[in-house]
Design a protein around this nucleic acid. Structure first.
Lengths: 265, 265
DNA sequence: AACTCGTATTTGTCCGTACATATTAGCGCA
DNA sequence: TGCGCTAATATGTACGGACAAATACGAGTT
């Protein structure tokens, strides 16, 4: 078959308008879903697929790459194409270039430390922070305000007692996030961040500090920073007046990285 | 140059042991980082890269694919390769196996459709939904309750008028998400989901419907579903009583496609 | 100035080939 | 049986070509 003869039969094969490699990917996908290619087994080799679909290796590889990007198969040189999962693992992945974007604090706002004390968590607070009851933390509290005087939020930062000294480095107009300060000063490497979002309303003390009415709806964000071996080294709780603040996320259709599967290591 | 002559000089060019296409990708990446190819501009075309690196189109395309998988460039037929970001997007990545997990509606809860009407967005509502003022939508509204009778949320679902018929398929104990129903029925492929979270408090009508007090703090989630070419085909707004609901996210330090770039290890 | 249309450019799809490299299976041999 | 080597197999990398399709652009027209 000459290299220039692919068009006529080509058009015939992809009457649907879809690219051929995608059609092959779909058919393989269907086969995996129907159990024709069970999870844990190897897909037919490229050569056999070439025969089966009467196409080129390039096209077949393109189809297999689609499945690989979807996390459905894992390819390995010298071994073959392993079926990992019966169905697509559509992973909606939030792209966050840096943990800072999880805050998106306006840059023209300032955190003011009004108190720093050592606390032992009571049951209710511990449950809210998902920390163990009775554990000891250093709590740094204060409001964050725009330069204009408009309130951004009230923040309680809980850090491990050995990190209490960072309190002196906080505050001011363009201060860095606390986790970053700790990370640089003590060499903690942030491995995971858990965020919990919930609604509440302002109690009297904080309402007065931020200059809003008591009972104003509020949006609370509780962030837990995990360092080495998953140890939580910082928990921060921010309470925002509802009318000033909303939290946005964006998820793009992508696919879970196949590189995460460790079956081969 | 014959097709069988690539090996000798080939080995010479890739003395580092890494594939040629990766070396090209690395060089382009460095160029982007150094501002030689600024963000927002087009990368040199494939043909020029072929000349510059004296390689084949296949190899150049493989290199560009690496950058594309890393989210650094975006390719478009007839236009070129657009530089999106100056650096790798290392990142805190939220793993969500399926869009459903963005909801985490309890399975033992049911959505009940109480109204379905055609609306034209006023300015205020349009701003909240980030939709254009005056655009027309079909709105499907109703409460979601636990089987026990405890309220989960009130939901307003806005869909494009041509998708209005899906209202009949909604409701019931174990109904699927609306976006999924639309996706299957009309072939819409979800490409992006934007979520905005904010706090509010219940107005009288919804408070009565859910059986909570007026003024109860609430957590609102506004989800915008983008389909083909970024067109928004569904917007849903859920209002949850604060005491029953919180929203959790988890971010792990990693990269979007770790398996694709061994260049930095 | 705005609009239409044809052309040039650019990436997408698809075919062919060859050799490199990792893995596995099997064979021979101690 | 157990070890080491070889051959077969599979994917990875890289070269070549051609046509399809979407976009950008400019010439010409309205």
């Amino acid at each position: 078959m000459g290299a220039n003869m692919q068009q006529p039969e080509e058009v015939g094969r992809r009457a649907s308008g879809r690219p051929l490699y995608r059609a092959i990917a779909d058919e393989l996908l269907a086969g995996i879903g129907q159990g024709i290619f069970p999870v844990g087994t190897l897909l037919p080799g490229e050569m056999e697929l070439i025969h089966r679909y009467q196409s080129s290796r390039h096209t077949v590889r393109e189809a297999l790459r689609v499945l690989e990007d979807m996390g459905i198969v894992q390819r390995q040189r010298g071994r073959g194409t392993l079926v990992l999962s019966p169905e697509a693992q559509p992973a909606f992945v939030q792209m966050v270039k840096s943990p800072e974007q999880l805050f998106s604090y306006p840059t023209d706002s300032a955190f003011r430390v009004v108190s720093e004390d050592s606390v032992t968590l009571s049951g209710a607070v511990a449950q809210r922070l998902k920390a163990s009851k009775g554990s000891r933390w250093t709590r740094i509290s204060g409001p964050r305000m725009f330069e204009s005087g408009m309130p951004v939020c009230w923040t309680d930062v809980y850090v491990l007692p050995e990190y209490a000294t960072i309190a002196r480095q906080l505050g001011g107009p363009n201060s860095r996030p606390v986790y970053e300060t700790i990370s640089k000063a003590f060499g903690e490497e942030v491995q995971k961040i858990g965020i919990e979002i919930y609604a509440s309303s302002f109690e009297e003390e904080r309402a007065r500090a931020l200059g809003v009415d008591v009972g104003t709806p509020s949006l609370c964000l509780c962030r837990r920073y995990h360092g080495d071996k998953g140890r939580v080294f910082e928990i921060s709780v921010s309470e925002h007046p509802a009318q000033n603040y909303s939290y946005s996320l964006e998820f793009t259709s992508g696919w879970q990285s196949a590189g995460h599967w460790s079956w081969n290591k």
